[in-house]
Computed example of a mutant assay.
Amino acid sequence: MTDTTIEIILQRMSAILDCWQLKALRKELELVTESQPQSPFRNEQLLASFITAKQVEGCSEKTLAYYRDTLARMTSTLDKSYSRINSNDLRQYLNDYEAQRHASKVTIDNIRRIMSSFFSWLEDEDYIVKSPVRRIKRVKTAVVAKETFTDEQLEAIRTECHSIRNLAVVDMLASTGMRIGELVNLNRSDIDFRERECIVTGKGNKQRPVYFDARTKQSLITYLKTRHDSNPALFTTLSGEPRRATIDAIESQLRSIGESCNAGRVHPHKFRRTLATHAIDKGMPIEQVQKLLGHAKIDTTMRYAMVNQNNVKASHRKYLE
């Protein structure tokens, strides 16, 4: 008798048995199951199949690793067949994880979302009858207003760029709002200088056009004139044999620039958030900002952007007074 069979029996008997009788029945069925050969679908096999399914969907290697590590840790801690894991097991796991690791509510909700995706997949594939995560509500997290760059800070950062490559990187991030992973994967052939646009490949291997301003165009042209190599990458290393620039290297350069010009913590994502905030602040429809940033859901765009409170006040006077 498989674990799935037990769940089906319990579900069918739930209409005529009370909760105590169902628990007693489950215990007896599990005792019978333990004396039989184990199901061929072990936890490791199911987890591997889930990761493969996510890979086919287009998830990045970084995302796949996060899914794999998170679910493997849960599996090891609970030490139970997936079909026997219930809502209380998962609630206790999340509670213990938060307490032992001093994890934030955001982290705990991320783990909950991954577990929800996994157990929903198990349900859809008929490995379990019902996902135990259905009864676990979304973890409420505090809404923290994240910082954006001021115009003065952006100019200070540009001034502090002592290499033309770094200036082109800063201008590209600031004017397009692209992700750092999208930027390092760009090739010279991807740039359309006449239309001031390029095609980037974002999450899920989805492509979208992004647009840059005239200043960025000039920075890119000036930078490329200094290149005498055949490397197809748009941005290469600053020294040695030209190689495609890495995310870590550019992030390190930006941190150093920020420290030198007292512009606070400078990182690629802050340019993206700044662009989204300024776009909405100046009246760009949120749906267009969503397309610009390559977000699948508009809720994600709203979390990136912070509307200027002065504009809210002005709009109240314009439309409501």
Rank of each mutant, 00 (worst) to 15 (best):
D126V: 10
M178Q: 08
K105M: 04
T246D: 03
I298R: 08
R68F: 04
Q100P: 00
S39R: 03
V56Y: 03
L220Q: 07
S175Q: 04
I250M: 04
A24V: 10
T216Q: 05
S131G: 05
W20I: 11
E30F: 01
G181T: 12
Y211L: 12
E44C: 09
I16V: 15
D299R: 12
T176A: 07
R113H: 07
R113W: 00
H267Y: 15
Q45A: 11
C261L: 06
Y66S: 15
Y67I: 05
V289P: 06
E30V: 15
M1H: 08
V129C: 03
R317Q: 15
D3L: 09
K225V: 04
T33G: 05
S35I: 05
K130C: 03
K54E: 10
E251S: 12
M306I: 13
K137W: 05
L234E: 04
N308Q: 05
T176E: 06
L17H: 12
A145H: 11
G294Y: 02
S175V: 05
K206G: 04
R188S: 09
M306F: 11
T33P: 00
T176H: 09
I128N: 01
A72R: 13
N205Y: 02
E7C: 11
Q38E: 14
E155D: 13
P37Y: 01
L224W: 11
K291L: 14
G202R: 07
L25A: 14
D18K: 10
F149E: 07
T148Q: 09
E34C: 05
T236R: 03
V170C: 06
P232K: 08
E34F: 01
L64R: 09
R179L: 08
T236G: 02
K137S: 14
E44A: 13
K140F: 01
Q288V: 10
K313A: 15
T246Y: 02
I6N: 00
M13C: 12
A156E: 12
V210T: 10
G264C: 04
A174F: 03
E57N: 13
N187S: 14
A305W: 00
R12N: 13
T277W: 02
M115K: 09
T237I: 08
L293V: 04
K54I: 01
I128P: 01
L78V: 08
M284R: 06
F193M: 10
H162P: 00
L90E: 01
R101W: 10
Q288D: 14
Q21D: 07
Y82D: 01
F119E: 03
H162I: 11
E123V: 05
K23W: 00
A145E: 13
N185R: 14
P232M: 05
R243C: 06
K282N: 15
Q36P: 00
Q92I: 03
L17W: 10
R208T: 09
S60T: 13
R317Y: 07
R188N: 11
H102V: 09
S252G: 07
